[in-house]
């Protein structure tokens, strides 16, 4: 009786080992396939869906850990979720990339307008500051403090404009537009200080 039990246990263990060994190959292939799919979207995902990417990477790491431990059943059970996660990640990255491209296109159009408009604002303000600097006294509606603020504001506009054009030239149109908006706001402020009417 004891001998029979021993054989049953041995056969059961062998059957389990055979079953496990049979799952190793599909589990390994599933992980390799998932890694390959993830590699295809990783660059875009890192840029446009970093949080989703972190989640998928974490799931993959867990399954690889199971694979290393020989828990092929857990790998095969979890790989479906990982595959879905990668597919969702691909969609998120594509949507993010598309939104970014639309934003860059909008910024490019905005920059095109601003890069034509702002030099005129700078020119008008510069001309007025130049003339007022030659005046023996300021007009009654501009005090010295306002004029000094206007001059420093104008210097800020010039330096920021230089930065904006450099950003645009290097392809960073979003940054260029952000700087151009700062210049426009500062310009409106300076024009008010100089009692210049905005067109």
């Amino acid at each position: 009786m004891r001998k029979t039990t021993h054989w049953i246990v041995t056969l059961a263990a062998a059957a389990m080992l055979a079953a496990c060994a049979g799952q190793k190959e599909p589990a390994t292939q599933a992980i390799q396939k998932a890694e390959a799919a993830l590699a295809e979207v990783r660059a875009d995902a890192a840029q446009f869906a970093p949080d989703n990417l972190a989640g998928v990477e974490s799931t993959l790491a867990g399954l690889k850990d199971n694979l290393a431990k020989g828990d092929y059943k857990a790998v095969l059970a979890g790989v479906g979720g990982l595959t879905s996660g990668i597919a969702a990640l691909k969609d998120s990255a594509a949507a993010g990339k598309s939104a970014m491209e639309a934003a860059v296109a909008a910024a490019s159009a905005e920059w095109s307008n601003m890069s034509g408009d702002l030099p005129k604002m700078v020119e008008a303000i510069g001309s007025r500051i130049g003339t007022l600097s030659k005046s023996k006294k300021l007009p009654k509606n501009i005090d010295q403090a306002s004029f000094d603020s206007a001059k420093s504001g104008f210097e800020m506009m010039q330096s920021t404009w230089s930065e904006a054009t450099t950003a645009a030239a290097s392809g960073n149109v979003m940054d260029a537009v952000a700087k151009a908006k700062m210049i426009k706001d500062k310009g409106a402020e300076v024009m008010q200080m100089l009692n210049m009417s905005a067109g």
Partner: peptide, 26 residues
């Protein structure tokens, strides 16, 4: 072509000197 340029419409009794004094203080 400069939307930021400032303009003034001449009124009776104005002179360029008077306008300059008003806008530039001199």
């Amino acid at each position: 072509d400069n939307p930021y340029a400032q303009y003034y419409t001449v009124k009776k009794g104005d002179t360029l000197s008077k306008i300059a004094e008003e806008f530039y203080g001199d």
